[in-house]
Amino acid sequence: MSSSIELPSYKEQSEDVRTRFAELYQRPIKLEVEGLSKSFTTAKGSVEVLSPISFNVHRREFVSVIGPSGCGKSTLIRMLAGLETLSSGTFLLDGQEPSGPGADRGMVFQGYTLFPWLSVKKNVMFGLEVNGKSGAAVEQEAMQWIELVGLTHAADKYPRELSGGMKQRVAIARSLANQPQILFMDEPFGALDPHTRCQMQAHLLQIWRNVDVTIMFVTHDLDEAIYLSDRILVLKANPGEILEYVEVPVPRPRTPEQLLSPEFLAIKQRLEELIHPKEPERDDEPLPNIRMTGIGDEVE
């Protein structure tokens, strides 16, 4: 980040942002994580991926988790989704301790994970059916969720016929159809091209506004995290622990133009500092200046 422009502190919040956060903290706590940790046993002994961490997520909050690779951000939400066992600690969802994976916690994966043998509609109906619903109502309900993600025209297609962005919209619709308490998203737009990615971020914000759902979103893209989130959970690696739980001072509703606003740049600078601390690293060393061309400096 260039520091030639004077940026406000990332803690400086405008009046309506402050009221927004005040209201947000009034809402009931949806997810309460207490001393959660994860370690794997390898041949060389126990490796701690995630130190005990604790944090809360409020109802209808949008929380992003960022951190360098290996910080355990994916492990964290996989544990919360019930796909990995906890090494220690507990977490409460709506005051209850869930066991194993379940329909109350939706998950969207980077790899789409649509069932290739089912049409879009049947994919969305899957969750409803395995949870005991049946009949024509299921199809109707599924079609509503497909409409929500704007894919009514593709309802009878197989996943292989869809683009990456469309697949991920189906995956979101499929998770939301179960009306989960919380939706975990594990780098869901990581495999998409930049343009589709921007579109998907806008789509996701709109969906989130229209549906009563709390979202925990893992990403390594700072812009994405800031653009989408209320708060950002910043983790550090080896072992993974919380560096800071940052409030995003950018007002809502968010628009792509805000990417260059002072609040946006301020929080982005702060996140950069947290994730890439100014320590001498091998990659940061200056390259030796060796000329391999005889022609003048016309490139500049």
Partner: peptide
């Protein structure tokens, strides 16, 4: 693909349903 199973689990499928569906 194991992630298909994981996806199905987060959608609420268990045991026999996972095998069958």
């Amino acid at each position: 693909d194991r992630s298909l199973l994981e996806a199905a689990q987060t959608l609420g499928a268990k045991n026999i349903t996972l095998i069958r569906r």
